[in-house]
Design a protein around this nucleic acid. Sequence first.
DNA 1: TTCCTTTCTTAACATACATCAATCGCAACA
DNA 2: TGTTGCGATTGATGTATGTTAAGAAAGGAA
Lengths: 192, 192
Amino acid sequence: MYTKILEHVSRYIELSHEEKVEFTGILIEKKISKKQFLIQPGDKVVEEFYVVKGCLKAYYLDEMSNKHILQFAIEDWWISDFEAFFNDLPAQLHIECLEDSVLLGIHKDSLDTLYERIPQFERFFRIKTTNAFVSLRSRILSSLQNNSKKRYIEFCEAYPNIEQRVANYHIANYLGIKPESLSRIRKELLRT
Amino acid sequence: MYTKILEHVSRYIELSHEEKVEFTGILIEKKISKKQFLIQPGDKVVEEFYVVKGCLKAYYLDEMSNKHILQFAIEDWWISDFEAFFNDLPAQLHIECLEDSVLLGIHKDSLDTLYERIPQFERFFRIKTTNAFVSLRSRILSSLQNNSKKRYIEFCEAYPNIEQRVANYHIANYLGIKPESLSRIRKELLRT
DNA sequence: TTCCTTTCTTAACATACATCAATCGCAACA
DNA sequence: TGTTGCGATTGATGTATGTTAAGAAAGGAA
């Protein structure tokens, strides 16, 4: 159960056996099935989640009920409503399971204690946040720089696995275009 | 010289007098005049900068020489090519002064030492990075959700000072539209 | 001030994407 | 087996933004 997350953490910091035990001790296993919600708007967000298995999407629903996908998460990714989590605000996002999933949650309070007891984890989460920051930045750059076709190609290259696993209208959503437009783009790409 | 940055840091962590002295000891003052570049593509990025005074823009130039502004920075903001800085990569961004500016730089090595000696700074920079992350996230959300007119209004509300200080074509750039389109939007807003 | 450069605005036309509506393909299942 | 429902596709049309080009306005330098 904990093998994957320990490998994941060990990619960034070195931990003794005791520290690993302490770390895994605070993790909360969560199984959640397809179409269920992990988080809904208004929820108090006290956990962030590591994906052991499965696939989820985080999206925002605007006043017109248009869905805007901010993030997909598959194995080895982290997901939460980070804004709500970090700033103690009520959730704004829906986080929904696209496949039956197994997650490991860390409670905000446990995390604060963890930082006190094993300061290396400050570093670990700083690095994770930095990486997330960088990938958001390249997403903005891509949206400023590329048309939809290029962004779709980029998406397929960056997330080849997700592309097989989620419906096209989810991808369209993530790219900020309509499913009809994505369909036309895909058609055009087939011809070439 | 150091008053502003110490106030800034103290908003997030508490420091003793000695720690403040140690911190300010590693800061490198940098004066740079309008139209000068702080960073250019290919540069080794070993510093991040706190803006004491002035105004800068960070942008990416694509193959077609189109400029894409990722960030403005005015007083009390941090700026660098963070991707390059954090991951030891050559710079991809241009960072250019829009007004004569005074900056305080922190060298990457000094920062690592600082983390060892005053672990609170791990926390400080984690929080800063988190905030930056959240603001990028809302920028993506805004680009998925809003048309250009709404995003321009949002921009004006979020950065009323910057709006007075930088040229419209910079703002158009940041919003991902052409100056002509921004001009149309501004005209339309005047009528209402 | 006057000149010159930069920035902003306007207009005509082109293009990408959205919208709306119909249809198709396919899997779930009674 | 046929029916149902969801997602994908297609076509016709509308709208926002891009493109190109010209001129107006603003700001700086001599």
